[in-house]
Design a binder for these strands. Structure first.
Lengths: 244, 244
DNA sequence: CGCGTAGTTGATGAAAATCAAATGTGGTGG
DNA sequence: CCACCACATTTGATTTTCATCAACTACGCG
């Protein structure tokens, strides 16, 4: 049950594992004040699944057996053109859900960006739970709405923003995600490689790299290392991202 | 209650009205075998609203008072960058619904591409109906899923396709929409101007125009007139759209 | 310690944007 | 009814941006 797809871009070779460190692995719910209904379900019944870097969780076209809750690590969700051009739709961090589709078939491919721990619920079980608990259905609707809004932001980015604006938008997005919960760090972690960022932003690795350099040379960021960026002026960066 | 937005691109001046003609205005439901639950609701209770070309239905940032069912004509849904760059997220044709958001505020601007007839339901009434009829909620979920899938297709287009592929994709998309219901025409109607197409496909009017010319010169389309294209080989066009 | 790969930087090329002008069309007013 | 006008569209010339091709550098791993 795998791939009506041409072979995926050769999986990227190993790369230093950005320390998952300080995040508690098991009790996801402990991290957030109000555990989401689905997190609870995954926590209670989910089977754990571990992926290595670049392991494939599912291919576009695969039957959607199960739904996955990211516990630790990161997934990338992508699609391909027949000639191998790749586009990454998004990155899933702990707390996000992968593989949730109304159809029978996955519309995208999901791969591990870093070693990743997942909690898995079979589809039939989820459908059952959804039927019993209307809160889950409402939650699904909200999530889908959020995904749609995010996708539409990205359409504006891809349709109308230049390279520098795209990268700034990406950094601001990651920064916002990481500071949900009141943290005040200016450090943004980039678990994914330059190629992944490029395929997410609709550019090439070279242009991504040059854009990082430009942001550095203009004093907007400090590149702690390849996988860690310090935003020297988040406000100004947001302006660039918004095209101001 | 209008616009935290900079002024919209100067409304386009009049333009010949693409004959709305042959489509029955009132009984939408008659057109399709199974009227959708929401169509029924709009048909039964909706208040009619008429827009002229380039009239604004709502602005990004407006309070979401109501939800609108397109009966006749076409809307464009768009968003802007501070400096005036515009992106069009989509075009709504008869049968489509506009203004449906889970939030209180419209995230986009909706304008009439052509003179347009709408059927309107106030939000409170819709919420009520949704609470009573679970079918409506399920339908909403399906619609949202479809929108998300469409947005993701478009992300691939904007992120990775060239100008010719974009235009081909657009024509194929419109063709598919128009041949839902078993019609077999090869004629695609383009109620929107080149600028709208450009802002939808992330290019300029000039590049759109040149791409039309290229498709014409390579024998893929016949430009009946500016607002009407004949697809001479839909199959081949779909190949171009897919990047083959 | 050096090999392999990712990332960066540089040189060149291609695609599309921008600037500019010509063409075509519908609508208007005489 | 016809000529003119306004404006969208098309076409052309030039510029800009980013992709591509090509080294070179840095760093983790064996």
């Amino acid at each position: 049950m795998t791939m009506p797809l041409p072979a995926l871009r050769t999986p990227l070779p190993r790369r230093p594992v950005p320390v998952p460190a300080a995040r508690p692995v098991v009790p996801v719910a402990v991290e957030r004040p109000a555990p989401t209904p689905e997190a609870e379900l995954f926590l209670r019944e989910g089977k754990t699944l571990v992926l290595d870097r670049d392991d494939i969780l599912f291919y576009e076209g695969d039957h959607a057996h199960a739904v996955y809750h990211v516990v630790e690590g990161m997934l990338r969700i992508g699609q391909l053109l027949p000639d191998g051009r790749r586009h990454i739709l998004g990155f899933l961090a702990p707390g996000d859900v992968a593989g949730l589709t109304l159809g029978e078939i996955h519309a995208h491919t999901a791969e591990a960006v870093t070693p990743t721990i997942l909690s898995l619920i079979p589809r039939p079980r989820l459908d059952e739970a959804m039927a019993q608990r209307p809160a889950l259905g409402r939650r699904l609707l909200t999530t889908m709405q959020a995904n749609l809004a995010a996708a539409q932001e990205q359409l504006l980015l891809l349709g109308r923003k230049g390279a520098l604006e795209r990268l700034a938008s990406f950094l601001v997005l990651l920064h916002q995600r990481q500071t949900r919960g009141g943290e005040t760090t200016r450090i943004v972690h980039l678990p994914m490689g330059r190629g992944d960022i490029a395929d997410y932003l609709g550019m090439t690795t070279e242009t991504v790299s040059r854009s990082f350099t430009r942001l550095r040379n203009t004093g907007h960021i400090h590149l702690v290392d390849v996988y860690e960026v310090e935003l020297l002026d988040p406000r100004r960066l947001a302006d660039i991202a918004a095209g101001r």
